[in-house]
Amino acid sequence: MRTRRAVILGLGGAAGALAFTLGLGWWQSRGRAQSGADLLPVPIAEMAFTLTDHRGNTVRPADWIGRPTLVFFGFTWCPDVCPTTLSDISGWLEELGPDADRLNCLLISVDPERDTPETLADYLANFDPRITGLTGPMAEIERAAAGFRAKFEKVPQGDDYTMNHTAGVFLFRADGNFGGIIDYHEDRRFALPKIRRVLG
C-alpha cells in the first residue's frame, strides 16, 4: 500500500495525468451539451449541502457568504494534480499577504471513503494553514459538486482506485456570485489577478 507521503511526493504520475486529462475534458466538453447559465456554478447562496471540515466542524455554503471564496475539488491520495494545486494555492496566499486572510479557502474531497477529517488534517499540514479541508457523506459531496458544476468519478486501479475530477480552482465574490476559475493548465501569472478581482 502506498504511503500518503509518497503520494504527496508525486509517485504514480500517470494516474495524476489521467485525472487531469479527464478533469479538463469534463470542464471543456460540458459546453457541447449545455449552454449559458447551465455551464456556470450556481451562486453560493443557492447551494445546499452539509460537510465536515478537517477540524470536525459542520460547514454549510451559507457560512461563506460575506467573504470571497476559493474552492478546489481533490483528494488526499491524488498523486500530483492535487498536491501541485494546493502548493500553488499556498504560494498565492503567501503572495497576497494580509489580503489572503479575507478569503475562504477550501478543498472539498471527492474521496470521502478514505478522506476522513483526521486524514484531511494530516494531509493539509503540508500546505498553508488557511486552507480548510471538507468531507462528508457521498450524497453531500455529490450535491456540492452539482452546485459547482464539477465532475468526479471513482476509477478502479488494480486492487486500489483513483478519483478523476474537475481540476480547476473556483472563485466566488463576497456576495457568493461566481467570479471565475483558475484552470489547471493556464499560465499561473493569471492566477493572482483573478483572485485580486474577487477580493475587490
Results as ranks from 00 to 15, higher is better:
M1Y: 01
R2E: 11
R2H: 11
T3E: 09
R4Y: 15
V7K: 01
G12D: 11
G13M: 03
A14N: 01
A14V: 01
A15G: 03
G16W: 02
A17C: 04
T21P: 00
L22W: 07
G23N: 08
W26H: 10
W27M: 08
R32M: 15
A33I: 01
Q34Y: 15
S35I: 00
G36L: 13
D38W: 08
D38H: 12
D38Y: 06
L39W: 09
L40E: 14
P41R: 00
P41S: 11
P43W: 12
A45H: 10
E46H: 14
E46A: 15
M47V: 13
A48T: 14
A48N: 14
F49S: 07
F49P: 04
T50S: 14
L51K: 00
D53S: 07
D53F: 12
A62K: 00
T69S: 12
L70K: 00
F73H: 01
F73M: 01
T76M: 09
T76P: 06
C78V: 07
D80H: 02
V81R: 00
C82V: 10
S87T: 14
S87Y: 01
S87E: 03
D88H: 11
S90V: 11
G91Q: 10
W92C: 09
L93R: 06
E95D: 04
L96T: 06
L96A: 09
L96V: 05
D99I: 03
D99G: 05
D99T: 02
A100I: 02
D101C: 00
D101L: 02
L106P: 02
L107K: 05
S109N: 12
D111K: 11
P112Y: 04
P112Q: 05
R114C: 09
R114I: 12
R114D: 13
E118Y: 05
T119S: 13
D122F: 14
D122M: 13
Y123F: 14
Y123L: 08
D128L: 01
P129L: 00
G133R: 01
G133F: 08
L134C: 06
T135N: 04
P137R: 10
P137E: 14
P137Q: 11
P137C: 04
E140N: 04
I141R: 07
E142Y: 02
R143V: 03
R143C: 08
G147K: 06
G147H: 09
R149E: 07
K151S: 14
K151T: 13
F152G: 02
E153Y: 07
K154W: 10
K154Y: 15
K154I: 13
K154D: 10
K154A: 15
P156L: 10
Q157G: 11
Q157T: 10
D159V: 12
N164W: 10
T166H: 04
A167R: 01
G168V: 05
L171N: 03
L171P: 09
F172D: 03
F172N: 01
F172E: 02
N177R: 15
N177L: 12
F178N: 03
G180N: 13
I181M: 15
D183P: 10
Y184M: 08
R189H: 06
F190G: 07
A191C: 10
L192K: 05
P193K: 04
P193C: 10
K194T: 08
I195M: 07
G200P: 03
